[in-house]
Amino acid sequence: MNNTNDPIIRLIEVSKRYGKFEALKEIDLDVRKGERIVVCGPSGSGKSTLIRCINRMEEHTSGQIIINGHELTDKTKDIDAVRSEIGMVFQSFNLFPHMTILKNLTIAQRLVRKTPKAEARDTAMHYLGRVKIPEQANKYPIQLSGGQQQRVAIARALCMKPQIMLFDEPTSALDPEMISEVLDVMVDLASDGMTMLCVTHEMGFARSVADRVIFMDHGQLIEQAEPETFFNHPQHERTALFLRQILRH
């Protein structure tokens, strides 16, 4: 139905208001299949709001969001089906605390995809292997380190075989020594051709993995460019200022 060259995510003049406050202002954005995009910007600039609108965890107030040829509207009948095609990884992991790691990975497959038990389990073990912690399958989330929990959260999203992965500051809540184990998993995923939209301030990751880096400020998409151009020749003063601030350390 849709041409392979069509963007898998298309945002046309998307705005989002919380009451009177405009969190997103007329954002236009196309993401092609397999593209890896890093979103950065100061705190409160609307990065989370942007990616949360893409899987409709938030409803945009105007404009159009088209995922894989399907526009997200009030009438989108099966928002749950759309969501199951979009994996999301949160800053605070958000594993289900009362379920074992294995159950965390199989529950949505069983309930949403109606996958048979044995198959769901195999898929779960496959992705646990991919994030390199198959031996933790029968533990509870609290028994794992932050880095391990975040890798489980990534595996949990992958178990749904999503077409798009959204990351909202996946390493911001982690102790420094655990950041790289999570980034390694994300790099691995990127090399596998997954369409990824990552909010992160890990500029090393952005440089080596991103096809495009996006800078947001005050709800606006200020600038987008390839990492090389973005970091070395930012077009806007606000971008340059932001880069100076985060790269100083």
């Binding site: 965890m57 089906a81 605070s92 605390p97």
Partner: peptide, 30 residues
């Protein structure tokens, strides 16, 4: 109940009812 758990369930495509019975009630129970 941690709102993050509920968000995670919804983001995985679980319905409101599924989220209630598999996430909210079991966590609330404790």
């Amino acid at each position: 109940v941690n709102p993050g758990s509920i968000e995670a369930a919804r983001a995985l495509g679980m319905s409101n009812t599924q989220t209630l019975f598999y996430v909210r009630i079991p966590e609330m129970w404790r």
